[in-house]
């Protein structure tokens, strides 16, 4: 007695309007202020770098899915996000071909070869940035000051700190972003505008960013100065890639834990590793390595933070 026209399916029969591509679009929108500030401070070449990485990522994604016999996934915009994030993590002087190679590494090796969206075990943009940093260290550290972007190379605030220079940029410069550094990492203001949008859209939750930044602040305050508890933690928060990484990279869905407890472990772990690298190694900046190291811990963290079911938390008397 079936009426062949009626669809029979499992409940629920109602779903909200969120989609993967809408989430990715939100991330792109949230990164626009940082990209715009980057272009304003470092010049129009920034736009070419962004174009190079985004195009490289999208084309790589298309070819890789084709070659692997998978359904093309460029429509979900995740490759655009990877490309944009990669560009924001590069200096404005980077040769375009290196930027493009970074995009291929991010998408083909880190993302698609491990199963595509949701399956990568490292943040693709972060892994590609580290790949470039190790392969072409000269080009990756050719920083320029915003106002003299044609000629004079300069050190980033963190490397100045490391070298013990006395004339460091002030907090205001660091906050606005009028300093040397990667395209999208310098302006804390622009990044916070984007982060606020992501919170508003509920794309990210505050656990990882807050514990990450909080741990760096605590660690550098305790150990970053001439004696204990004398470090300039505000300087550490505002400089380098911490804000960009904490809000936009460490929160990457595929490579961050699922539960509240797991997210706190992730944030604290990233913060400790970042601080150790910044304070005790030859690298001025450590957020990339910190995130990648914590990325590979995520499956383990998830495994050990499976929550107890509702009502199973404690024995009922």
């Amino acid at each position: 007695m079936g009426d062949s026209k009626l669809l029979v399916s499992s409940s629920p029969h109602l779903k909200d309007s969120s989609t993967t591509s809408r989430i990715m679009l939100d991330v792109v929108i949230a990164l626009i202020p940082a990209a715009a500030f980057g272009a304003y401070f470092f010049g129009a070449r920034v736009l070419l770098v962004i174009l190079a990485t985004v195009l490289s990522c999208v084309i790589s994604e298309y070819i890789a899915t084709k070659a692997l016999g998978k359904k093309p996934t460029i429509g979900d915009l995740s490759a655009v996000v990877t490309g944009l994030l990669l560009a924001l993590n590069l200096p404005s002087t980077i040769p375009l071909w290196i930027a493009a190679v970074g995009g291929v590494v991010a998408i083909v090796i880190v993302k698609q070869l491990f199963g595509g969206i949701g399956q990568n075990f490292m943040n693709p943009a972060m892994a590609a940035r580290v790949f470039i940093l190790i392969s072409w260290p000269m080009q990756m550290t050719a920083w320029v000051l915003p106002d003299q972007s044609d000629a004079i190379t300069s050190a980033t605030p963190l490397s100045m700190l490391k070298l013990g220079e006395s004339t460091l940029p002030g907090y205001k410069e660091l906050f606005i972003g009028n300093i040397a550094g990667c395209i999208g990492e310098t302006s804390v203001l622009a990044l916070l505008i984007g982060a606020a949008y992501l919170f508003y859209r509920r794309v990210i939750t505050p656990e990882i960013p807050l514990t990450f930044i909080g741990t760096v602040a605590l660690f550098t305050w305790i150990f970053g100065g001439d004696g204990l508890f004398r470090g300039d933690f505000l300087y550490h928060i505002l400089s380098g890639g911490l804000i960009l990484a904490a809000f936009f990279m460490a929160t990457d869905y595929s490579t961050s834990p699922m539960t509240l407890k797991g997210k706190i472990i992730m944030g604290v772990g990233c913060g400790i590793i970042t601080s150790i690298i910044r304070l005790y190694t030859n690298y001025p900046e450590g957020v990339s390595f910190a995130i990648l190291l914590m990325n590979i811990m995520v499956p383990l963290i998830d495994r050990y933070t499976i929550p107890r079911s509702f009502g199973g938390e404690k024995k009922v008397a």
Binding site: M1, G2, D3, L6, L7, V8, S11, P12, H13, L14
Partner: peptide, 13 residues
Amino acid sequence: GPMMGIAQHSLNL
């Protein structure tokens, strides 16, 4: 309801 309801295969039920 739409969240937990059961889809019916026939209007004769």
